Computed example of a mutant assay.
Amino acid sequence: MAAKKLHSHPVIVMAIIINVFVLGLAVAWSGPDLTKLWRLLGEDGIVEWMQFLCFAVLSGMLGFATVQRWRQSRRFSLELLALGGLTALVALAALEEISWFQRILQIQSPEFFLQNNKQSETNLHNLAVGSESLHKAVLLKIIALVGLTHNLVLPLLARVKPGVRRWVEDLGLYLPPLGASIVYLVLVALSHALIEHPRKGELGEMFGAVHYLATVFAAYFTGYNYGKPALFENKADACRLSALFAMQLAFLLMVAWMLSAGAGAMSS
């Protein structure tokens, strides 16, 4: 299903709607009183829970795709290795996002993390690297470079040289639709320009989590903007599944909102 029109895939449309809604919420809640904005961006806030839920679902989807590809070929390949590696990487991101359930289970951090973690939490991305955390000093730069390359540079090159897309897909990866990527990158830029808050970077991370959840589903499961066989090759089945998954995305935002209310978003 090598579709060209952005509005033809309901999951990508829903992802854009969710990201625009959250940015609008952040703008509306900005002002002298940052109480509501902390509810959105703080620890155990709406945005953090949405990131976790998207990463958790995405890891499950990639794991499912890995198993299905293995059943089809019964041999190791670059595609299988890429899907399996991404499954583990995204699962790690999900667990890191909520500090491995530490705050939920109310577990005290070991001495090592109390001394070496910027937030005294049991996670790796906030480990101290000089005066900064590993996340700010290293990971954000890598994420920005990979994100721009995957969402802008390679899709633009693929329009001129179709072999670029084939090369990426032969590695077991995919290229997001350029239109969806541009919207995602513009929203990240707007979040930095319009929001004044010490945790405004969380918005861009959530936008990325929602964007990748939608585009991974669209590519691997329905074949949207993807040259290799999709997991659901029947067009009617893919369309019905896409409609259901679009509703699931909206449901994830509602669950994130409810979880933030139950946990109580921290203001520092």
Score class of each variant (00 low, 15 high):
Val216Asp: 01
Phe112Ala: 04
Ala2Trp: 09
Ser8His: 11
Ala250Lys: 00
Glu196Ser: 04
Ala263Phe: 05
Val13Glu: 05
Met14His: 00
Ala218Ile: 05
Pro10Asn: 10
Leu134Met: 15
Val57His: 13
Lys136His: 07
Val27Leu: 02
Leu83Gly: 01
Glu233Leu: 04
Val13Trp: 08
Leu95His: 14
Thr149Arg: 02
Ser260Glu: 13
Leu259Lys: 08
Ala128Ile: 08
Ala56Glu: 14
Gly84Phe: 08
Cys54Leu: 02
His7Ile: 10
Met254His: 04
Arg71Ile: 03
Ala219Cys: 05
Gly201Trp: 04
Gly84Leu: 06
Ser120Phe: 03
His192Tyr: 15
Trp257Tyr: 15
Ser59Ala: 14
Leu6Phe: 15
Met1Gln: 11
Ile195Asp: 03
Cys239Phe: 05
Thr87Ser: 14
Val47Cys: 07
Ile16Ala: 08
Met206Val: 13
Asn19His: 00
Leu244Ile: 13
Trp167Ile: 01
Leu105Met: 14
Ile142Cys: 10
Gly42Pro: 12
Arg39Gly: 10
Val153Glu: 07
Ser30Gly: 10
Ala238Trp: 02
Ala128Met: 11
Ala28Gly: 02
Ser30Gln: 12
Trp167Cys: 01
Pro155Asp: 11
Asn151Pro: 00
Ala93Val: 09
His197Phe: 06
Lys4Ala: 11
Ala193Thr: 10
Pro177Val: 03
Arg159Lys: 10
Phe217Ser: 09
Ala265Ser: 15
Leu81Trp: 11
Gln72Leu: 11
Ile107Lys: 06
Ala246Ser: 12
Leu252Asn: 11
Gln108Asp: 15
Ile16Lys: 02
Val22Lys: 01
Ser242Cys: 03
Asp237Arg: 06
Phe221Pro: 04
Lys4Gln: 14
Phe217Asn: 09
Ala88Ile: 13
Ser242Gly: 07
Val129Lys: 04
Val146Gln: 09
Leu6Ile: 13
Leu23Tyr: 10
Cys239Trp: 14
Ala236Arg: 08
Ser77Asn: 08
Leu105Arg: 09
Glu169Ser: 01
Met61Trp: 00
Gln119Trp: 06
Lys228Thr: 09
Leu157Gln: 09
Leu140Pro: 03
Leu140Lys: 13
Tyr224Met: 01
Arg166Leu: 05
Val255Leu: 13
Phe52Asn: 10
Val210Trp: 05
Leu89Phe: 14
Pro229Thr: 00
Ala261Arg: 15
Phe251Lys: 08
Leu58Asn: 08
Ile46Arg: 10
Glu111Lys: 05
Glu233Lys: 04
Val27Tyr: 13
Leu203Ile: 05
Val22Leu: 12
Cys54Ala: 12
Val22Glu: 07
Leu78Ala: 15
Gly262Ser: 03
Ser191Glu: 04
Leu152Glu: 08
Val57Met: 12
Lys200Met: 04
Pro110His: 04
Lys36Asn: 10
Ala214Arg: 01
Ala209Val: 06
Trp70Asn: 11
Glu48His: 12
Ser260Phe: 02
Gly172His: 07
Phe101Val: 12
Ala193Trp: 14
Glu121Cys: 03
